[in-house]
Design a protein around this nucleic acid. Structure first.
Lengths: 333, 333
DNA sequence: TTGAAAGCGATACCAC
DNA sequence: GTGGTATCGCTTTCAA
């Protein structure tokens, strides 16, 4: 494997000159630059990452902590990972994956051994035990989600509270008075996942503000759970006319089940989903939805990490405003 | 950040002794070891990854090349990634993610700059252009999938040909004579994805061997495509009594649509799926299936990479035998 | 059983 | 505009 010394020798210059050609940190004569670049090409030279990290205290690696449990929304996580990796590459960074199951003790290891320059952590819970550890790492950190105590930490996420509000506003503007939220699995709530609670708040507060009758119901991602929920919801004396679904896994089964029970969407019941756009589009019928902008969040997370690496250590909270797209699964009442 | 010299000083020994305590490469007196370990703990020492990589020519990083297109089976990919990361950690390795979109030129970069010690590449196509590049990398490589020309390369995957055969055998043993394969999206075939073709071969050859009438039909992951496929399949003069579904995304919609058309499973039509077990279980009705052992494959891939890093460079082809679980969605004819 | 010191391959400071 | 070289923090050979 060629080293910087090999390149220098081949180009008839010193190693430092090769280094500067690569980094652009000082001006090089056109002639020298060309000879060096030619040698680099001919030798197939790639700077050794370890040596570079040691000398510069920069690894050009980002650590991404991903939740890989089964009860998470796998496609959303994937979109997020993809966006993170792609964006990182535009900054010449590679991405290291840590699954959250490896546990809290992996974070200090990765930080202290200088494996990565910064960390991006997904799926924060409201009272996440990792918060204090992350704060102590002395490395740039970006959280996806908004834990309760996030002082000093940079966070980015969809504004789920506003999203909950937006869904209700939409139904209210169509004249609906009796609505329900079909939420994520009970375990998501009991775990204190931050986005679930924030969405729920936005939903309830807005319904209250509009003096609507509002029911909320968590739903495990199984047919049995869904049927139970629907049995319950559809048996109400005051018929529910608007349904907000914050549970991607259940969208397909829900539509199938409503169809089976002879409930037409949107004639009998309006449905608003909270999910990535592609998912809303690919259901049995296209769904009106508030988009979960996983790719955007991933990109922003990397950009915020890069900003911190550039020296701007001020914590930032960035909550993306929700966007609702009407695809016809909601109708006036 | 504490260095090995700090630890050595605190413990009253030389840096080399600390290094040997850590690596276990030479015997250390109990007393010395304890003093060193104590200092390590007290200082919160973690060896610097870059320095270690430079001195030892080992990064303890594995590169995982993941396809992050939308037409792939996202949950399967996730299971695979999770298993890879988890297994890698048991060998004290971390995992670097490369998405295949970054393209072929990233592979030489990662290898030549010694970012990672070995590579695991998912989603190989039959005539994958990456094969020759990978062969030239001079680093351990494990392929998930079986490209046509894999001489000299280590591969691991489910034996999809045997899986296709097993599905047909199962239906044949139940007396079915007219069967169909609902396959992956046409783009998966046209891309030449290796597993799709292998499964198709196993399906067709076995059907032929049993003198069964067999239809095969790719199906895009949309409701429209599914309906078209079903219209076609259900209109046959000889009614299809056994359906093999090698397309996870379409399982839910398929069952809903069959239900809607009044086709009872398994009374009117038997269904065998090819998908991860948890997916087969969580459908509207539990499905008889051949399991896609993503987690096992991920684990094996890491183990095979580690074996190569241990010096055993002989290429190995490992095709896992398919396992069929009867969950009642198939019935005698 | 332990220590001293020579690398590993870059970066970046100091000279010229 | 370019070169020389100390330095980063660890591993490992050589010596004792």
């Amino acid at each position: 494997m060629a080293t910087i010394a090999d390149v220098a020798r081949a180009a008839g210059v010193s190693p430092s000159t090769v280094s500067y050609v690569l980094s652009g940190k000082r001006s090089i004569s056109a002639d020298t630059r060309q000879r060096v670049e030619r040698s680099i090409r001919e030798l197939g030279y790639h700077p050794n990452a370890g040596a570079r990290a040691l000398a510069s205290s920069k690894t050009n690696l980002l650590t991404l902590v991903v939740p890989l449990r089964t009860d998470i929304n796998v496609p959303v996580v994937m979109q997020f990972v993809a966006a993170t990796v792609t964006t990182a590459r535009t900054y010449d960074y590679d991405v290291l994956i840590l699954t959250r199951d490896e546990g809290i003790e992996e974070l200090p290891r990765v930080a202290a051994s200088s494996i990565a320059d910064a960390l991006i952590v997904m799926d924060m819970e409201a009272a996440d035990p990792r918060v204090s550890v992350l704060r102590s790492l002395d490395r740039p950190v970006v959280l996806i989600g908004l834990p309760d105590s996030h002082e000093g930490l940079t966070c980015v996420d969809l504004d789920f509270e506003a999203a909950g509000a937006k869904c209700v506003e939409h139904l209210a503007s169509l004249g609906h008075r009796t609505v329900a939220l079909l939420g994520p699995s009970p375990v998501v709530y009991s775990r204190g996942t931050s986005y679930a609670g924030r969405f729920l708040n936005g939903f309830q507060q807005t319904a209250t503000a509009h003096k609507m009758r509002a029911t909320t119901m968590p739903c495990a991602p199984t047919y049995a759970a869904l049927r139970t929920c629907l049995d319950n919801l559809l048996a109400r004396r005051r018929a529910i006319t608007g349904l907000v679904v914050h549970n991607e896994a259940i969208l397909g089964p829900l539509l199938a089940e409503l169809d089976k029970r002879g409930k037409k969407v949107p004639q009998d019941i309006s449905v608003v989903a909270v999910c990535p756009d592609d998912m809303a589009v690919s259901q049995a019928i296209p769904l009106t939805s508030v988009s979960i902008p996983a790719a955007t969040v991933g990109q922003l997370a990397v950009e915020m990490a890069m900003k911190q690496l550039d020296g701007d250590r001020d914590p930032v909270i960035r909550l993306l405003p929700p966007e609702l797209t009407d695809r016809g699964s909601t109708a006036p009442r």
